[in-house]
């Protein structure tokens, strides 16, 4: 498996999942890089039992969930509050709004909806997260409803 090819193919997708989780551009970039460091380390152990995409998304979502542990261990200094919500100025407001809404969901819901929006099959999402397919389906339905409602409440500007 060519690592460079995986890096090029999956970078944007993994970035979006991380961005949905933390809604912070530079932090999401760091998490994406960390994900690829783990992928690089684990790649020799990858057996073709599962889809490589599912495998990478599993690593990425675990890395996001683990973020709190790493932060605790590294004793990172707290960022000033005004820097925390750093986003790219050029990003359209509706995109910013969607990512903001997602990052305010419960952690597992963030991962489930991010994977759904990345067009991962629901059966694969179930395997990644460790939920039953029924649970995933119900969750996705509820989260989409919630997000749509938020967009409407936000003035239906988009």
């Amino acid at each position: 498996m060519d690592f460079e090819k995986l890096y090029k193919t999956y970078w944007q997708r993994i970035f979006r999942v991380c961005m949905g989780y933390v809604n912070n551009y530079s932090l999401a970039q760091d998490l994406t890089q960390e994900t690829f460091i783990i992928v690089w380390k684990q790649l020799p152990k990858f057996r073709n039992e599962s889809n490589i995409g599912t495998w990478i998304f599993r690593i990425a979502s675990n890395n996001c969930l683990r973020h709190i542990e790493v932060e605790n261990r590294m004793k990172k200094t707290t960022l000033p509050i005004d820097l925390k919500q750093e986003t790219l100025v050029s990003v359209e407001p509706k995109i910013q709004f969607l990512y903001k809404c997602i990052s305010e969901l419960k952690e597992i819901d963030r991962i489930v909806i991010s994977l759904e929006l990345e067009e991962i099959k629901q059966s694969e999402i179930a395997k990644i997260v460790g939920l039953s397919e029924v649970n995933v389906r119900v969750k996705i339905h509820r989260i989409k409803e919630k997000l749509t409602q938020k967009f409407k409440d936000h003035g239906n500007q988009y």
Binding site: K8, R16, A28, K94, I95, L147, T148, Y158
Partner: peptide, 19 residues
Amino acid sequence: METNIDLKNIWQQQKSEQP
């Protein structure tokens, strides 16, 4: 009033510079 917001489309417009 718009009822179906294309979340997938909005989601995928988020781009990041790939190092």
